[in-house]
């Protein structure tokens, strides 16, 4: 990867919201830097996950999550 591409990637990750997800072969899902919108998606994937549901409910009280 050349330096210019690296720079572009760095710029975009700093300027835009980023959430990373890892799905293991056994179906476990890991996520970090979870935005309110992503929490809602993850809560849909596993409605039994009470902790994620509580995170997802915060989306209802939060508007315009990307104050750019």
């Amino acid at each position: 990867m050349n330096r210019q591409t690296n720079r572009r990637r760095a710029t975009s990750s700093a300027e835009k919201a980023v959430c990373e997800i890892l799905i293991l072969p056994d179906g476990k899902i890991f996520a970090h830097n979870i935005t309110p919108t992503m929490a809602a998606v993850l809560a849909e994937l596993n409605p039994a996950d009470e902790a994620m549901s509580r995170r997802a409910t915060r989306k209802k009280t939060f508007k315009n999550e990307l104050p750019n």
């Binding site: 990750s13 919201a17 980023v18 996520a31 830097n33 935005t35």
Partner: peptide, 9 residues
């Protein structure tokens, strides 16, 4: 900085 966003993590 490399990230600035609202999070619920």
């Amino acid at each position: 900085f490399f990230s600035a966003q609202v999070e619920v993590s």
